[in-house]
Amino acid sequence: MSQTFQMIPPSLLEAIGVVGFGLYVLNYTMLTMHHLTSHSKTYFIINIVAASCVLIGLIHSFNLASALIQGFWIVISFTAIFVRLRPSKDASLA
């Protein structure tokens, strides 16, 4: 697996990480401008993609703290999507 990543040019890995940064900024801007809500699945999907891109960028220049933050964003975003897809207790009472 690591041999596969070694074949990727470092500049491409860095560019993917920068795309992740851009997605974070775009997501936060859309949230701030009320184009997204923090309850929408789209918000969390963008967070997952952004964190994944930043993690890919970290392959070339690893930073444990940053990798842990990205891992947290991925786990919490998947958790939020799962919670939103689960039928609510109120819906089962209807």
Rank of each mutant, 00 (worst) to 15 (best):
Q3L: 13
F5V: 10
F5Q: 07
M7Y: 11
I8Y: 07
I8W: 11
P9T: 01
S11H: 10
S11F: 14
S11C: 05
S11P: 00
A15T: 15
A15N: 14
G17D: 01
G20Q: 10
F21S: 11
G22A: 07
L23M: 13
L26P: 00
L26Y: 15
L26Q: 02
N27L: 03
N27F: 03
N27C: 06
Y28D: 14
T29S: 14
M30P: 06
T32D: 14
T32M: 09
M33S: 10
H34R: 14
L36F: 15
L36V: 02
T37L: 03
S38R: 04
S40H: 09
S40I: 07
K41F: 07
T42Q: 00
Y43G: 00
I46M: 07
V49C: 13
V49Y: 10
V49H: 05
V49M: 02
A50D: 08
A51R: 05
A51S: 15
A51V: 02
S52I: 03
L55M: 04
I56V: 14
I56T: 12
I56M: 12
I56F: 07
G57Y: 05
G57W: 02
G57E: 03
I59P: 04
H60E: 08
S61F: 05
N63C: 03
L64I: 13
L64M: 13
A65S: 08
S66E: 09
S66H: 04
A67R: 01
A67I: 09
L68G: 06
I69V: 15
Q70N: 06
F72R: 02
W73N: 11
I74W: 01
I76N: 13
F78A: 13
T79Q: 05
T79L: 08
A80W: 03
A80K: 15
V83I: 12
R84H: 05
R84F: 02
L85H: 09
R86Y: 09
R86H: 04
R86E: 07
S88H: 05
S88I: 02
S92I: 09
A94T: 15
